[in-house]
Design a protein around this nucleic acid. Structure first.
Length: 475
DNA sequence: AAAAAAC
C-alpha cells in the first residue's frame, strides 16, 4: 500500500467472496486490495497454511479475516443454539490492545453475516467474556493467558477449531508465550489450517512453523526490516536531561498534532507523562502497570483526538492502528533494534507521510548503531537548538523540597513557573480532528447486540480530557 | 536491561 508504483490489482470482487463480505468491505470504504490482501486471500481461501511476513498497516488483518469469514460461511448456522456455533476460527495476538483491535475489524467484516465473534483478554472481568462464549462464537480473538484460563474454566472448547491465526508470532515468542502456545496448539484438531504472521522469520519462528504448519505458502510483502519510505526519520543527539525540553519543543515547532512518545520503562513513561502535563501538553500514558481500564481509556481518548501525546512503553509498539498518526518520538532508543522498526511503523501509515524522531543520549549511541545496522541505512542527524534546558530539574527539586511532588497538579501556579516557559496557549495542543469515521458507530453498536469489549463511558472520557483524576470504572 | 501476559 505504501508502494505507489504497485501494479493496480483487481478489486475485492475478483476473489469470489460472498456478497455479505463484499458489502462489509465496501462499508469500510475499501475498494482495492492491498498487496498482501491480493496475495493472501486466494491462498487462505484455497485452505493452504501461510507464513506471512508483513508490517502492520499493510492490511494484514483483512488479508486473513475476509477469507476466514468466507470459509466459515460455508457452514454458517442461523440457529440460536450455542452448540451450533462452536469456535471454528481462533486468532491469537500478543497484546490485549491488539486483540481488541483485531476483534473490532472482524466484527465489522462479519457484520452482515450470521457468524458470531468475540474477544477475550486479561485484565478485565471474566464473566462478560464467559457469557459471550456460552452464546457460542465461530470466531474467537484472544491473548493466550486468558484463553487458557477460559479453557480451564471449561467456558470454551477448542476441539472444533478449523483455522488458527498466530498474529505477531515473533512478538509472542519474545514475550515468552511459547509454552502457552504449545498448550493451546495441543488442544486444537491436528487437521486444521494455520496462518502465521510475523514481522521477521527468525530461527525460532521457523522452528515453530516447522512443528505446527503444514507445507505453508510463504508470503512476504514489505522487505524484511525495511522501514516505510514515507516516514521521515531523524535523530537528535541530546543530553539525557534535555530530552523532555526537546520533546516539548519538537511538538511545538513541528506542529505535530498527535504523537506517540516511546519510553523504555514503565516508570519512565509515567514520569514523562506527568512532566509533559506540567508543560501544558495534553497527555496520557499507556503501559503494563496501568489497569486495563486505564489503558483502554488512554487509547480511546487518543484515537478520539483529545490527547496530543500518548506516552507509551513497547506495549504500544506493535500493531496498533491509529489513523494517520503524524509522528512518533523515541524518547529512549529501544534496546532491541527490532522494536525501532515497529515503533516508527505507527506513523506514515497507509500512504500518508509521517515523522519518526529519535532522541539519542550519549549512553544510547550503541543502540543507534545497532538500529542503523538492522535497517541498513543511516538515520540523518538533525540539529536541535534548545530554547530551554534542564532548568526544569531545578524546579522539580524545589517542589520536592517543598514537600510537593507536583504529580497531582495539572500545572503549577504561574509564579512558580520558570520565566522561559512559553505561555500555555503556545504549547497546549487543541484536540486534533480525526478523519470522519467511515462507519456509523451507533449503527455498529446496534448490529452487535453486546459489544464484547467494554468501551470507556463518555463520562469518564470527558473526565480524562478535563484533567479530572480518573476514577476506577464500575466494570 | 526492559517490556508484555492469567488469576
Amino acid at each position: 500500500m505504501s508502494d505507489v508504483n504497485a501494479v493496480p490489482t483487481a478489486g475485492f470482487d475478483s476473489f469470489g467472496l460472498h456478497s455479505d463480505i463484499l458489502r462489509a468491505v465496501a462499508d469500510q470504504g475499501y475498494t482495492q486490495p492491498t498487496p498482501i490482501q491480493a496475495q493472501a486471500i486466494p491462498i487462505v481461501l484455497a485452505g493452504r497454511d501461510v507464513m506471512g511476513a508483513a508490517q502492520t498497516g499493510t492490511g494484514k488483518t483483512a488479508s486473513f479475516s475476509l477469507p476466514i469469514i468466507q470459509r466459515l460461511l460455508a457452514h454458517a448456522s442461523t440457529s440460536t443454539s450455542p452448540a451450533r456455533h462452536p469456535v471454528r476460527a481462533l486468532i491469537l495476538t500478543p497484546t490485549r490492545e491488539l486483540a481488541d483491535q483485531v476483534a473490532d475489524n472482524v466484527r465489522g467484516y462479519a457484520q452482515h453475516t450470521a457468524l458470531r465473534s468475540t474477544v477475550v483478554f486479561g485484565g478485565v472481568d471474566m464473566r462478560a467474556q464467559e457469557a459471550e462464549l456460552r452464546r457460542g462464537v465461530e470466531i474467537l480473538i484472544a491473548t493466550p493467558g486468558r484463553l487458557l484460563d477460559h479453557v480451564q474454566q471449561r467456558t470454551v472448547d477448542l476441539g472444533q477449531v478449523q483455522i488458527l491465526v498466530l498474529d505477531e508470532a515473533d512478538r509472542m515468542l519474545d514475550m515468552g508465550f511459547l509454552p502457552d502456545l504449545q498448550r493451546i496448539l495441543n488442544l486444537l484438531p491436528k487437521s486444521r489450517q494455520t496462518l502465521l504472521f510475523s514481522a521477521t522469520f527468525s530461527g525460532e519462528i521457523k522452528k515453530l512453523a516447522a512443528s505446527y504448519l503444514r507445507d505453508p505458502v510463504t508470503i512476504e510483502v514489505a522487505r524484511r526490516n525495511a522501514t516505510a519510505e514515507n516516514v521521515q526519520q531523524v535523530v537528535y543527539e541530546v543530553a539525557e536531561d534535555d530530552k523532555r525540553a526537546a520533546v516539548v519543543q519538537l511538538l511545538r515547532e513541528r506542529d505535530l498534532k498527535q504523537v506517540i512518545v516511546f519510553v523504555n520503562s514503565k516508570i519512565g513513561a509515567s514520569r514523562l507523562a506527568r512532566q509533559l502535563e506540567r508543560d501544558g501538553v495534553v497527555t496520557a500514558a499507556i503501559h503494563g502497570d496501568k489497569s486495563q481500564a486505564e489503558r483502554m481509556q488512554a487509547l480511546e481518548a487518543f484515537k478520539q483526538g483529545g490527547i496530543a501525546a500518548l506516552v507509551a512503553t513497547d506495549v504500544a509498539a506493535r500493531g496498533l492502528d491509529i489513523a494517520e498518526l503524524p509522528g512518533v518520538i523515541n524518547y529512549d532508543l529501544p534496546y532491541n533494534p527490532e522494536d525501532y522498526v515497529h515503533r516508527i511503523g505507527r506513523t506514515g501509515r497507509a500512504g500518508a507521510s509521517g515523522e519518526a524522531i529519535s532522541l539519542c543520549a550519549p549512553d544510547e549511541r550503541k543502540h543507534l548503531v545497532e538500529i542503523e545496522k538492522l535497517i541498513k541505512r543511516d538515520i540523518p542527524r538533525g540539529q536541535l537548538q534548545l530554547t530551554r534546558t534542564s532548568a526544569y530539574h531545578e524546579r522539580d527539586g524545589e517542589e520536592r523540597r517543598n514537600g510537593r511532588s507536583g504529580s497531582f497538579e495539572r500545572r503549577p501556579p504561574r509564579s512558580t513557573r520558570p520565566r522561559h516557559v512559553a505561555p500555555e496557549d503556545e504549547i497546549f495542543y487543541k484536540p486534533y480532528e480525526p478523519a470522519p469515521a467511515k462507519e456509523d458507530e451507533a449503527a455498529d453498536v446496534k448490529a452487535t447486540s453486546e459489544p464484547a469489549s467494554p468501551k470507556p463511558p463518555k463520562r469518564q472520557l470527558a473526565a480524562l480530557l478535563g484533567g479530572v483524576p480518573l476514577k476506577t470504572p464500575r466494570d
